[in-house]
Nucleic acid binder design. Structure first.
Lengths: 231, 231
DNA sequence: CGCGGCTTTGATGTTCATCAAGTAAAGTGG
DNA sequence: CCACTTTACTTGATGAACATCAAAGCCGCG
């Protein structure tokens, strides 16, 4: 059930990232005429691995996950994108098809801009080109950094990582509602579902966090950071 | 011992990547005047994590490794760049300092182009901008893909991966001289040095490869590919 | 020639995935 | 709305995968 609405004028868009700041009114009008805002309910597929890339995807609100489906049907989550993130990563330049599947993990609004319009703007507006690549590079860079961070740590450090990540970078609060299942956490940080639960329980017993289903509160952030640092 | 020479005219450079194909003679001349070719002996440092990024780095010949030094002084290799690769990854846009250190693992020639020149070309030559980002995106994309590939496999699959990687993508031969130590292999694919050796010995006993120090020959590529596929 | 780093093999212990089994929660169809 | 099914969550027990430790040979280099 995917709603397709064209609500906002790009010019007034409060979600407009700083990568789009150096555009003239005419250029914004152009984007506006070639963009769609789509609403995706939690759990809905945004795009599938292998789909041709026709739009540049920008997350206005909500959360989405990027993942690959392995041969054994297991999913492997590459990253979770938050509002203002460009989703779809670098595929828009390096590939004609999406390398990862994307699914909404919270009700989300995705802004789809015709890729040709973006490419034309890059060609004609040099300042925009630089801004744009700066932003897109940061997203890709942080994906690489995260993958390395996770893979050089062991289980407790990895759980500490996602708890801190959700708390600091996504919800800005020590108390939040985990948007993904234990299984998805496992797929995101390369561990088994059982061990995700085990480590979370451990942290609860140690009074580092409080858990009630998906409601999580970080009680002792200092210790959590220490666990993360030590790996 | 770092030699700084300005040998080639960019226009005649046989290492010129297709990202630089859509440049006018004047533009090439501009690059030429603001570039240096530096020779790095095997083992020499190209740049250190934290150095300010002033040049765009392009590998003409040789091999270099990108790596991070962990707090416990252990190195963690992110990727190995081969000729025609842009090294330094996306940091040129996303950061003012290098995120990774770079060291030559074979005698190498690196072409350093003043970053401002590149950024100006992006601003003024739209077609170049697109070409350039296409290429740079591919490099970054493949780094992400590789990290995921490695981390979803276990030891035998990881060793199979680097053997196939060096054979297919770097040396184009079933017989090659491993440019890095066992320890560095371990740092590249997240395993202990001892287990790198153990798995290599195993493969030798199984007649999959032949080893004499750093000289490696792949005898049974089909089985190696199978081991890689199975993880 | 001796020292330090690289390589190799075996033994040991830790970390972690997997299996099993049970409970709770959340859909689903009548 | 309730019985039914499925999916998510949780805990314990087991074994496999892997890192670490230890010891010895090897090679390059000052």
């Amino acid at each position: 059930m995917e709603l397709s609405v064209k609500v906002n004028d790009c010019k007034e868009c409060i979600y407009r990232s700083w990568a789009f700041k150096n555009l003239s009114d005419d250029e914004l009008k152009l984007i506006n005429s070639r963009k769609k805002e789509k609403f995706f309910r939690k759990g809905e597929l945004v795009c599938l691995e292998g789909d041709t890339v026709t739009s540049f995807l920008y997350l206005q609100t909500g959360l989405v996950k990027l993942y690959k489906t392995e041969s054994n049907n297991r999913e492997h989550i590459i990253s979770i994108a938050k509002p203002m993130d460009f989703i779809g990563l670098l595929s828009i330049f390096s590939n004609t098809v999406h390398v990862y599947s994307i699914t909404a993990i919270e009700d989300s609004i995705v802004c789809l801009v015709d890729l040709e319009v973006i490419k034309n703007l890059i060609k004609t507006n040099g300042v925009f080109a630089i801004d744009f690549f700066e932003k897109i590079s940061k997203v890709a860079d942080s994906v690489i950094k995260t993958r390395v961070d996770i893979n050089t740590r062991q289980l407790r450090g990895r759980i500490a990582y996602i708890l801190l990540h959700f708390s600091k970078h996504i919800y800005n609060s020590s108390k939040f509602n985990l948007p993904i299942s234990r299984k998805e956490v496992a797929e995101l940080i390369d561990m088994s579902t059982e061990n995700v639960i085990r480590v979370l329980s451990e942290f609860r017993k140690d009074k580092i966090i409080q858990i009630e289903g998906k409601n999580i509160e970080i009680l002792d952030i200092k210790r959590l950071e220490k666990i993360y640092d030590l790996g």
